[in-house]
Design a protein around this nucleic acid. Sequence first.
DNA 1: CACCCCGGTACCCGCAACGAAACCGGCGCT
DNA 2: AGCGCCGGTTTCGTTGCGGGTACCGGGGTG
Lengths: 126, 126
Amino acid sequence: MPPAPLPDFDPMCPTSALPFQIGDKWTGMVILCLEHGPRRFTELQTPLRAVTAKVLTETLRAMERDGLVSRTSYPENPPRVEYALTPLGRSLLDLIAAARTWSREHLPTLLAARAAATDTPPPEAP
Amino acid sequence: MPPAPLPDFDPMCPTSALPFQIGDKWTGMVILCLEHGPRRFTELQTPLRAVTAKVLTETLRAMERDGLVSRTSYPENPPRVEYALTPLGRSLLDLIAAARTWSREHLPTLLAARAAATDTPPPEAP
DNA sequence: CACCCCGGTACCCGCAACGAAACCGGCGCT
DNA sequence: AGCGCCGGTTTCGTTGCGGGTACCGGGGTG
């Protein structure tokens, strides 16, 4: 698989302002990273550069418990661990796509409303 | 509007285990409560009996800031305040419906996987 | 021998969300 | 006068998620 388009999650991207969340904070992004095939632990760390190893491990463990991803460890050298979406995890891709569509269409509106409410706290000036 | 079908959110319902969330913890449920027309504060407290007044107020204020709901106060007596969905808030209904469809189809699978992983921590017995 | 890489684990902490309980102010009812 | 309702606000906890840092174990590599 030559061009594996791993998404790139910039911590400054307004994705953080998304009004919804799949599972824990990073679960949705992990699912997106695994969309096009299994990934190794460090491959996930690259696009998710805002998450520490500990939190990523916790996220993956929780997803494994919930049957969203499968964890395959190859006792090679150097050690290799691959995470892949299960059918259940894959079934969330549609939902995530719908959420991203909503964001593309409506997130600017939401952010504008928030900014307007924040910049002009009370209409009655002092 | 005689039969206003307010949803009923039992705190024991596995909705709490939903692997996604709109905004803050209660935002999604508030949107559902407002789906069929404006509601008063106490009308929202009835189906959302697990949420305290303070948290419900905070949730509604945040939704108002984000332009998801509108707040209309009638200086009558007794005082009356009505919350209604804005078009932006209404645009989230499709997404919530999709999430509920996913839950109906896949949540039992997820809960079964979680239960299996919890009941049988390690396959290797002590 | 010393060092690094991979895929973690263990421990500790801070903050924000969540929550229980009390209070409030204007009005109506009795 | 006393009580209750409506729509909150205030105060004071508590919890728990997320995060930072350090460490580990085994093999390859210089």
